[in-house]
Amino acid sequence: MNTLRVAALYLKVGVLNELQYRVNFFLNVLQALIQVATGLIVISLVYSHTPRLNGWTEPELLSLLGVQILLGGVIHTFVQPNMERLMEDVQKGTLDYALTKPEDSQVLVSVRNVRIWQLVEVISGLTLLGVGISRLQTSVGVLDALAFLVAILLGAVMLYSFWLVVTTGAFWVVRMEHVLELFEGVYQTGRWPVGVYPGWMRYGVTFLVPVGFAVTVPAQAATSRLHGGTFALAAGFAVLLFAFTRWFWRFGLRRYSGASA
Protein backbone atom coordinates (compact mmCIF):
# COMPACT_ATOMS: atom_id res chain seq x y z
CA MET A 1 0.00 0.00 0.00
CA ASN A 2 2.79 2.35 0.96
CA THR A 3 4.53 1.56 -2.33
CA LEU A 4 1.44 2.65 -4.25
CA ARG A 5 1.28 5.91 -2.30
CA VAL A 6 4.91 6.66 -3.05
CA ALA A 7 4.39 5.85 -6.74
CA ALA A 8 1.36 8.15 -6.90
CA LEU A 9 3.32 10.93 -5.24
CA TYR A 10 6.20 10.56 -7.69
CA LEU A 11 3.77 10.73 -10.60
CA LYS A 12 2.11 13.81 -9.15
CA VAL A 13 5.43 15.64 -8.81
CA GLY A 14 6.34 14.59 -12.35
CA VAL A 15 3.07 15.95 -13.70
CA LEU A 16 3.43 19.25 -11.83
CA ASN A 17 6.92 19.57 -13.18
CA GLU A 18 5.78 19.06 -16.76
CA LEU A 19 2.81 21.41 -16.42
CA GLN A 20 5.27 24.31 -16.24
CA TYR A 21 6.13 23.85 -19.89
CA ARG A 22 2.83 24.78 -21.54
CA VAL A 23 4.18 25.46 -25.02
CA ASN A 24 5.05 21.78 -25.20
CA PHE A 25 1.33 21.07 -25.30
CA PHE A 26 0.90 22.94 -28.59
CA LEU A 27 4.06 21.37 -29.92
CA ASN A 28 2.70 17.92 -29.15
CA VAL A 29 -0.66 18.77 -30.75
CA LEU A 30 1.14 19.79 -33.93
CA GLN A 31 3.24 16.64 -33.93
CA ALA A 32 0.18 14.47 -33.29
CA LEU A 33 -1.65 16.11 -36.19
CA ILE A 34 1.27 15.39 -38.52
CA GLN A 35 1.41 11.80 -37.27
CA VAL A 36 -2.33 11.23 -37.83
CA ALA A 37 -2.29 12.88 -41.26
CA THR A 38 0.63 10.75 -42.41
CA GLY A 39 -1.03 7.59 -41.10
CA LEU A 40 -4.30 8.40 -42.88
CA ILE A 41 -2.51 9.08 -46.15
CA VAL A 42 -0.65 5.77 -45.96
CA ILE A 43 -3.86 3.84 -45.29
CA SER A 44 -5.79 5.55 -48.08
CA LEU A 45 -2.86 4.85 -50.41
CA VAL A 46 -2.92 1.14 -49.59
CA TYR A 47 -6.69 0.90 -49.97
CA SER A 48 -6.62 2.76 -53.27
CA HIS A 49 -4.91 -0.36 -54.63
CA THR A 50 -6.82 -3.10 -52.78
CA PRO A 51 -10.22 -3.45 -51.04
CA ARG A 52 -8.91 -5.68 -48.23
CA LEU A 53 -5.53 -6.16 -46.60
CA ASN A 54 -5.17 -9.61 -45.12
CA GLY A 55 -8.92 -9.67 -44.44
CA TRP A 56 -9.00 -6.21 -42.82
CA THR A 57 -11.19 -3.50 -44.33
CA GLU A 58 -10.24 0.18 -44.29
CA PRO A 59 -12.32 1.17 -41.20
CA GLU A 60 -10.92 -1.84 -39.33
CA LEU A 61 -7.38 -0.83 -40.16
CA LEU A 62 -8.20 2.74 -39.13
CA SER A 63 -9.19 1.40 -35.71
CA LEU A 64 -5.93 -0.54 -35.56
CA LEU A 65 -3.96 2.63 -36.30
CA GLY A 66 -5.95 4.39 -33.58
CA VAL A 67 -5.04 1.71 -31.03
CA GLN A 68 -1.39 1.80 -32.08
CA ILE A 69 -1.19 5.57 -31.63
CA LEU A 70 -3.15 5.44 -28.36
CA LEU A 71 -0.94 2.78 -26.84
CA GLY A 72 2.14 4.56 -28.20
CA GLY A 73 0.97 7.65 -26.34
CA VAL A 74 0.68 5.70 -23.08
CA ILE A 75 4.20 4.32 -23.56
CA HIS A 76 5.66 7.71 -24.51
CA THR A 77 4.03 9.34 -21.48
CA PHE A 78 4.74 6.87 -18.69
CA VAL A 79 7.26 4.25 -19.77
CA GLN A 80 9.79 5.64 -22.20
CA PRO A 81 10.94 8.65 -20.13
CA ASN A 82 11.61 6.36 -17.17
CA MET A 83 13.52 3.86 -19.26
CA GLU A 84 15.64 6.59 -20.82
CA ARG A 85 16.44 7.90 -17.36
CA LEU A 86 17.32 4.40 -16.20
CA MET A 87 19.77 3.89 -19.08
CA GLU A 88 21.37 7.23 -18.35
CA ASP A 89 21.59 6.43 -14.64
CA VAL A 90 23.34 3.13 -15.30
CA GLN A 91 25.85 4.86 -17.57
CA LYS A 92 26.56 7.68 -15.13
CA GLY A 93 26.37 5.64 -11.96
CA THR A 94 23.56 7.75 -10.54
CA LEU A 95 21.24 4.76 -10.27
CA ASP A 96 22.64 4.26 -6.77
CA TYR A 97 20.49 7.17 -5.61
CA ALA A 98 17.36 5.21 -6.49
CA LEU A 99 18.65 1.88 -5.23
CA THR A 100 19.52 3.13 -1.77
CA LYS A 101 15.92 4.19 -1.14
CA PRO A 102 13.88 1.79 0.99
CA GLU A 103 11.02 1.28 -1.49
CA ASP A 104 10.82 -1.40 -4.18
CA SER A 105 13.47 -0.52 -6.78
CA GLN A 106 11.47 -1.65 -9.83
CA VAL A 107 8.55 0.57 -8.83
CA LEU A 108 10.86 3.53 -8.21
CA VAL A 109 12.66 3.34 -11.54
CA SER A 110 9.29 3.07 -13.30
CA VAL A 111 7.60 6.19 -11.88
CA ARG A 112 10.30 8.82 -11.69
CA ASN A 113 9.50 10.65 -14.94
CA VAL A 114 6.33 11.39 -16.83
CA ARG A 115 5.84 13.35 -20.05
CA ILE A 116 2.27 14.40 -19.55
CA TRP A 117 1.88 16.32 -22.83
CA GLN A 118 2.41 13.12 -24.80
CA LEU A 119 -1.11 12.18 -23.68
CA VAL A 120 -2.19 14.18 -26.72
CA GLU A 121 -1.38 11.02 -28.66
CA VAL A 122 -3.88 9.09 -26.55
CA ILE A 123 -6.56 11.58 -27.57
CA SER A 124 -5.65 11.52 -31.26
CA GLY A 125 -5.53 7.71 -31.14
CA LEU A 126 -8.97 7.57 -29.50
CA THR A 127 -10.35 9.92 -32.14
CA LEU A 128 -9.06 7.72 -34.95
CA LEU A 129 -10.44 4.66 -33.21
CA GLY A 130 -13.82 6.36 -32.87
CA VAL A 131 -13.89 7.30 -36.55
CA GLY A 132 -12.88 3.78 -37.53
CA ILE A 133 -15.56 2.14 -35.39
CA SER A 134 -18.29 4.54 -36.53
CA ARG A 135 -17.62 3.48 -40.12
CA LEU A 136 -17.98 -0.22 -39.33
CA GLN A 137 -21.08 -2.14 -40.38
CA THR A 138 -21.43 -3.93 -37.06
CA SER A 139 -22.18 -2.21 -33.78
CA VAL A 140 -19.93 -2.48 -30.74
CA GLY A 141 -21.48 -3.98 -27.60
CA VAL A 142 -20.76 -3.37 -23.94
CA LEU A 143 -18.86 -6.62 -23.72
CA ASP A 144 -16.61 -5.57 -26.62
CA ALA A 145 -15.90 -2.25 -24.95
CA LEU A 146 -15.01 -3.99 -21.70
CA ALA A 147 -12.76 -6.48 -23.48
CA PHE A 148 -11.14 -3.54 -25.27
CA LEU A 149 -10.31 -1.75 -22.01
CA VAL A 150 -8.80 -4.85 -20.48
CA ALA A 151 -6.87 -5.62 -23.68
CA ILE A 152 -5.39 -2.10 -23.77
CA LEU A 153 -4.30 -2.49 -20.16
CA LEU A 154 -2.71 -5.85 -20.95
CA GLY A 155 -1.02 -4.31 -23.98
CA ALA A 156 0.48 -1.55 -21.85
CA VAL A 157 1.73 -4.14 -19.34
CA MET A 158 3.34 -6.20 -22.12
CA LEU A 159 5.08 -3.22 -23.71
CA TYR A 160 6.25 -1.95 -20.32
CA SER A 161 7.67 -5.38 -19.54
CA PHE A 162 9.43 -5.57 -22.88
CA TRP A 163 10.93 -2.11 -22.38
CA LEU A 164 12.13 -2.92 -18.89
CA VAL A 165 13.68 -6.24 -19.95
CA VAL A 166 15.59 -4.52 -22.74
CA THR A 167 16.64 -1.62 -20.52
CA THR A 168 17.80 -4.03 -17.82
CA GLY A 169 20.25 -5.17 -20.49
CA ALA A 170 22.07 -1.91 -19.74
CA PHE A 171 23.53 -3.62 -16.64
CA TRP A 172 25.60 -5.71 -19.05
CA VAL A 173 25.91 -3.61 -22.20
CA VAL A 174 25.99 -0.05 -20.74
CA ARG A 175 25.79 1.73 -24.13
CA MET A 176 22.12 1.37 -25.05
CA GLU A 177 21.12 4.67 -26.63
CA HIS A 178 20.22 3.09 -29.97
CA VAL A 179 17.68 0.79 -28.35
CA LEU A 180 15.21 3.66 -28.50
CA GLU A 181 15.40 3.72 -32.29
CA LEU A 182 15.18 -0.03 -32.40
CA PHE A 183 12.00 0.02 -30.33
CA GLU A 184 10.40 2.83 -32.33
CA GLY A 185 11.23 0.95 -35.53
CA VAL A 186 9.75 -2.30 -34.32
CA TYR A 187 6.73 -0.57 -32.77
CA GLN A 188 5.76 0.60 -36.25
CA THR A 189 5.02 -3.03 -37.14
CA GLY A 190 1.92 -2.61 -34.93
CA ARG A 191 0.27 -0.35 -37.52
CA TRP A 192 -0.54 -3.40 -39.61
CA PRO A 193 -2.36 -6.59 -38.64
CA VAL A 194 0.14 -9.25 -37.52
CA GLY A 195 -1.32 -11.52 -40.21
CA VAL A 196 0.45 -9.67 -43.05
CA TYR A 197 3.87 -10.67 -41.78
CA PRO A 198 5.46 -13.89 -43.00
CA GLY A 199 5.56 -16.77 -40.48
CA TRP A 200 8.82 -16.21 -38.59
CA MET A 201 8.30 -12.47 -38.39
CA ARG A 202 4.78 -12.95 -37.06
CA TYR A 203 6.14 -14.98 -34.16
CA GLY A 204 8.82 -12.36 -33.60
CA VAL A 205 6.41 -9.42 -33.34
CA THR A 206 3.93 -11.46 -31.28
CA PHE A 207 6.11 -13.09 -28.65
CA LEU A 208 9.63 -11.68 -28.85
CA VAL A 209 8.53 -8.06 -29.16
CA PRO A 210 4.89 -8.27 -28.08
CA VAL A 211 3.65 -5.50 -30.40
CA GLY A 212 1.28 -7.89 -32.14
CA PHE A 213 -0.48 -8.91 -28.94
CA ALA A 214 -0.39 -5.42 -27.51
CA VAL A 215 -1.93 -3.62 -30.50
CA THR A 216 -3.83 -6.17 -32.59
CA VAL A 217 -5.80 -7.75 -29.72
CA PRO A 218 -7.39 -4.47 -28.47
CA ALA A 219 -8.14 -3.50 -32.08
CA GLN A 220 -9.85 -6.86 -32.61
CA ALA A 221 -11.86 -6.32 -29.43
CA ALA A 222 -12.97 -2.84 -30.55
CA THR A 223 -14.05 -4.15 -33.96
CA SER A 224 -15.84 -7.23 -32.48
CA ARG A 225 -13.43 -9.65 -34.10
CA LEU A 226 -11.81 -10.99 -30.96
CA HIS A 227 -11.99 -14.71 -30.12
CA GLY A 228 -12.10 -15.77 -26.48
CA GLY A 229 -9.04 -17.99 -27.01
CA THR A 230 -6.88 -15.15 -28.32
CA PHE A 231 -7.94 -12.99 -25.40
CA ALA A 232 -7.06 -15.68 -22.84
CA LEU A 233 -3.71 -16.26 -24.57
CA ALA A 234 -2.90 -12.54 -24.48
CA ALA A 235 -3.86 -12.32 -20.80
CA GLY A 236 -1.77 -15.37 -19.91
CA PHE A 237 1.17 -14.08 -21.88
CA ALA A 238 0.99 -10.65 -20.22
CA VAL A 239 1.06 -12.20 -16.74
CA LEU A 240 3.94 -14.49 -17.68
CA LEU A 241 5.91 -11.68 -19.25
CA PHE A 242 5.40 -9.43 -16.25
CA ALA A 243 6.59 -12.16 -13.87
CA PHE A 244 9.63 -12.79 -16.03
CA THR A 245 10.41 -9.07 -16.13
CA ARG A 246 10.31 -8.87 -12.35
CA TRP A 247 12.65 -11.83 -12.05
CA PHE A 248 14.99 -10.46 -14.75
CA TRP A 249 15.15 -7.04 -13.10
CA ARG A 250 16.27 -8.59 -9.79
CA PHE A 251 18.71 -10.85 -11.64
CA GLY A 252 20.20 -7.81 -13.40
CA LEU A 253 20.39 -5.86 -10.16
CA ARG A 254 22.46 -8.60 -8.54
CA ARG A 255 24.84 -8.30 -11.46
CA TYR A 256 25.04 -4.52 -11.07
CA SER A 257 27.95 -3.20 -9.09
CA GLY A 258 27.38 0.55 -9.34
CA ALA A 259 29.71 2.99 -11.01
CA SER A 260 31.08 5.70 -8.75
CA ALA A 261 28.08 7.89 -8.12
Binding site: T50, H178, E181, L182, G185, Q188, T189, V196, Y197, M201
Partner: peptide
Protein backbone atom coordinates in the same frame (compact mmCIF):
# COMPACT_ATOMS: atom_id res chain seq x y z
CA UNK B 1 28.12 -2.91 -32.46
CA UNK B 2 26.45 0.42 -31.77
CA UNK B 3 26.41 1.12 -35.51
CA UNK B 4 24.86 -2.26 -36.17
CA UNK B 5 22.10 -1.74 -33.61
CA UNK B 6 21.30 1.53 -35.30
CA UNK B 7 21.29 0.03 -38.79
CA UNK B 8 19.13 -2.92 -37.72
CA UNK B 9 16.61 -0.52 -36.20
CA UNK B 10 16.37 1.17 -39.57
CA UNK B 11 15.65 -2.13 -41.33
CA UNK B 12 12.23 -2.44 -39.64
CA UNK B 13 10.75 0.45 -41.63
CA UNK B 14 11.41 -0.83 -45.19
CA UNK B 15 10.58 -4.40 -44.19
CA UNK B 16 7.13 -3.23 -43.02
CA UNK B 17 6.51 -1.38 -46.30
CA UNK B 18 7.77 -4.38 -48.24
CA UNK B 19 5.56 -6.86 -46.41
CA UNK B 20 2.45 -4.68 -46.76
CA UNK B 21 2.94 -4.03 -50.48
CA UNK B 22 3.85 -7.64 -51.24
CA UNK B 23 0.60 -8.58 -49.52
CA UNK B 24 -1.31 -6.05 -51.66
CA UNK B 25 0.45 -7.33 -54.80
CA UNK B 26 -0.52 -10.93 -54.00
CA UNK B 27 -4.15 -10.06 -53.37
CA UNK B 28 -4.43 -8.13 -56.64
Amino acid sequence: TANYFYMLGMVAEPVIYLVVWSSVARSS
